[in-house]
């Protein structure tokens, strides 16, 4: 295939023209084990009817930031999202909590 051959030649040229990399290319890559700490979020869903249900259920799998920065979405859109969490992503939620969370999110007034 012409494209893959071209890409390979370009890669070879890149190797030849980059002295630091050419030196490195002489021996195989060495790897350093990684150990990191990932930050946690202390953000909760702001008070309001259903906030407790949201805090108790949603935060187990993800922090609140992305939810709270969604544009204004309809109740149908939030229902679809929350039900995806339950039926596809298997979040173990009570039916009452599902409804409370959908109402809470649909009533949310996105802040800047």
């Amino acid at each position: 295939m012409v494209t893959s051959r071209t890409a390979f030649l370009l890669a070879a040229l890149a190797l030849a023209s980059a002295p630091t990399f050419a030196a490195e290319a002489a021996e195989p890559m060495r790897f350093t084990s990684q150990q990191v700490e990932l930050p946690t979020s202390d953000r909760f869903f702001p008070e309001g009817p259903g906030a407790e249900a949201a805090n108790n259920n949603c935060l187990a799998c993800h922090s609140a930031g992305m939810v709270l920065t969604q544009p204004k979405l309809s109740k149908a859109q939030w229902s679809e999202t929350v039900n995806k969490m339950v039926h596809v992503y298997k979040a173990p939620m009570d039916e009452a909590d599902v409804n409370a969370i959908v109402d809470y999110l649909a009533a949310m007034k996105p802040q800047p």
Partner: peptide
């Protein structure tokens, strides 16, 4: 945020899982 390992200043879309 500069709180993520191996990362300089980044726009925080979500902390966990990271975006």
């Amino acid at each position: 945020t500069t709180a993520f390992p191996g990362k300089g200043p980044m726009i925080l879309q979500r902390t966990r899982p990271p975006l």
